[in-house]
């Protein structure tokens, strides 16, 4: 039988795990996991709290993993030389960012800055590697979903690139036609 001291500790831990599990359920990366698997993942997650204006990670620094916004708001900002930083995305509860760092140690492509008091759930590459080592089936599910998300983004980027190319070509053709008409 647990005494009050231990029951408080276990209760707090259980509640934290439950909250994290609930939050993870709404993240596309973990949507294929069942309850038991979600609990296993929740156990290895890191909960971090940030103050308004505090940087979660910096552009060009080596990436270690991804974050899920549990509470608060985070902005992704890109620093361009000789220009003021441009905000690429505004993330709120259940949004996630930095997932590419789960795949390799490439530098972060932008800053992530907390705009309010925020609570983030961190999932990092060393933990994913441990998971792949200990529970390959579960780790494989996450990696598969990650590659699927990256694949979708790549496809979207390709479509956008094609669109931009098409628009550029149209603009160039219009300009040529206009110049020919003027001549």
């Amino acid at each position: 039988m647990r005494d009050s001291f231990w029951s408080n500790i276990f209760k707090e831990r259980d509640e934290t795990t439950r909250t994290v599990t609930d939050r993870l359920r709404s993240v596309p990366l973990f949507k294929t996991l069942d309850n038991k698997e979600l609990r296993a993942v929740a156990h290895i997650m890191h909960i971090r709290t940030y103050k308004p204006g505090e940087t979660v990670f910096y552009q060009d620094e080596p990436g270690v993993g991804m974050y899920v916004v549990e509470e608060g708001r985070v902005h992704i900002k890109m620093n361009i030389p000789n220009k003021s930083p441009s905000t690429l995305a505004e993330l709120e509860e259940c949004d996630f960012f930095g997932e590419l760092a789960l795949l390799d140690e490439s530098p972060r492509s932008a800053d992530a800055v907390s705009q309010t008091d925020s609570v983030l759930i961190g999932f990092f590459r060393p933990d994913l590697m441990t998971l792949l080592d200990r529970e390959p089936r579960l780790g494989g599910k996450i990696v598969l979903e990650l590659t699927r998300i990256v694949g979708i983004r790549l496809r979207n980027s390709n479509t956008e690139l094609q669109d931009i190319k098409q628009r550029l070509a149209d603009t160039a053709r219009d300009r040529t036609d206009q110049m020919a008409a003027n001549d």
């Binding site: 290895i44 890191h46 505090e54 979660v56 990670f57 080596p62 270690v64 993993g65 060393p126 441990t130």
Partner: peptide
Amino acid sequence: GTGMKKGIISLVPNRFFEMSLNLIDTVD
């Protein structure tokens, strides 16, 4: 062991968190 490592890393301030995590993993 994993929980102990997680507990130690949780004490690291946010500014050095990712760097410490990377460093501890590499050293480990």
